[in-house]
Simulated assay, not measured.
Amino acid sequence: MNKGYLIAHVTVSDPVAYAKYARAAGEAMQDFSPKIVAWSGQYENLEGESHERHVVFEFSSFAEAKRFYESPGYQAARSLRAGAATGTFVLVEGAES
């Protein structure tokens, strides 16, 4: 089964409110145990809309990544992000290894 990846590109406008989102999202992730593949750090925007933060989470499958994103815990956390940040969130199926 191929892995699933949640990729987020985010620009924060309200750091205090975003910190609440980040805590709640982290708690929601505990049941899913994703691997953090990339987390901010050095980056270079080569094309398209630029954001200041980037994160890639690896899940056991695409379905598991989607299950996390749609989970009640994450959706509650997501509501805290409204007005605190803008960004793009994408689910991607990994290639077989």
Rank of each mutant, 00 (worst) to 15 (best):
residue 60 S to A: 09
residue 34 P to E: 09
residue 95 A to N: 00
residue 94 G to T: 09
residue 29 M to Y: 04
residue 86 T to L: 01
residue 52 E to C: 07
residue 37 V to F: 08
residue 1 M to Y: 07
residue 51 H to Q: 07
residue 63 A to W: 00
residue 70 E to M: 10
residue 65 A to G: 15
residue 47 E to L: 11
residue 18 Y to E: 07
residue 14 D to V: 02
residue 32 F to V: 06
residue 6 L to N: 02
residue 60 S to P: 00
residue 48 G to F: 06
residue 25 A to W: 02
residue 26 G to E: 04
residue 73 G to Q: 01
residue 72 P to R: 10
residue 9 H to A: 14
residue 90 V to C: 08
residue 35 K to F: 02
residue 1 M to C: 09
residue 53 R to L: 12
residue 83 G to P: 11
residue 30 Q to M: 14
residue 48 G to Y: 02
residue 2 N to Y: 09
residue 55 V to N: 03
residue 14 D to K: 03
residue 75 Q to G: 13
residue 18 Y to T: 06
residue 34 P to A: 13
residue 20 K to Q: 15
residue 11 T to Y: 13
residue 41 G to T: 11
residue 51 H to C: 09
residue 12 V to I: 15
residue 61 S to F: 11
residue 14 D to A: 10
residue 44 E to W: 01
residue 45 N to T: 14
residue 16 V to M: 02
residue 68 F to M: 07
residue 94 G to R: 00
residue 42 Q to S: 13
residue 83 G to W: 09
residue 88 T to N: 08
residue 26 G to D: 01
residue 14 D to Q: 02
residue 37 V to M: 10
residue 73 G to C: 02
residue 5 Y to E: 11
residue 26 G to I: 10
residue 2 N to L: 05
residue 55 V to P: 06
residue 23 R to H: 13
residue 14 D to I: 06
residue 79 S to I: 04
residue 64 E to Q: 13
residue 24 A to Y: 03
residue 88 T to F: 07
residue 38 A to I: 00
residue 72 P to Y: 05
residue 15 P to M: 14
residue 70 E to T: 00
residue 59 F to R: 02
residue 69 Y to H: 14
residue 59 F to E: 00
residue 33 S to R: 12
residue 8 A to S: 13
residue 18 Y to A: 11
residue 90 V to Q: 11
residue 49 E to F: 03
residue 92 V to L: 15
residue 96 E to Q: 11
residue 62 F to Q: 04
residue 6 L to P: 01
residue 27 E to H: 08
residue 12 V to W: 07
residue 15 P to W: 09
residue 43 Y to P: 09
residue 79 S to F: 05
residue 75 Q to Y: 12
residue 86 T to V: 13
residue 35 K to N: 13
residue 85 A to G: 12
residue 56 V to G: 01
residue 24 A to N: 03
residue 35 K to W: 00
residue 7 I to S: 10
residue 28 A to I: 12
residue 3 K to F: 11
residue 91 L to Y: 10
residue 10 V to P: 03
residue 96 E to M: 07
residue 70 E to P: 00
residue 19 A to V: 02
residue 6 L to C: 14
residue 5 Y to L: 09
residue 36 I to E: 04
residue 30 Q to E: 15
residue 30 Q to C: 11
residue 46 L to A: 08
residue 25 A to E: 03
residue 91 L to D: 01
residue 95 A to P: 01
residue 23 R to I: 14
residue 8 A to N: 10
residue 38 A to V: 10
residue 64 E to L: 08
residue 75 Q to R: 14
residue 17 A to H: 06
residue 65 A to T: 05
residue 77 A to G: 10
residue 97 S to R: 12
residue 78 R to P: 02
residue 49 E to C: 02
residue 73 G to S: 04
residue 84 A to R: 03
residue 34 P to H: 12
residue 46 L to R: 04
residue 94 G to D: 00
residue 10 V to H: 06
residue 50 S to K: 12
residue 51 H to E: 02
residue 48 G to R: 03
residue 96 E to Y: 10
residue 32 F to H: 08
residue 9 H to M: 15
residue 90 V to H: 01
residue 14 D to R: 03
residue 11 T to G: 13
residue 82 A to D: 11
residue 81 R to Q: 12
residue 2 N to K: 10
residue 59 F to A: 05
residue 84 A to P: 04
residue 8 A to H: 00
residue 38 A to Q: 04
residue 20 K to S: 15
residue 77 A to Q: 01
residue 44 E to R: 10
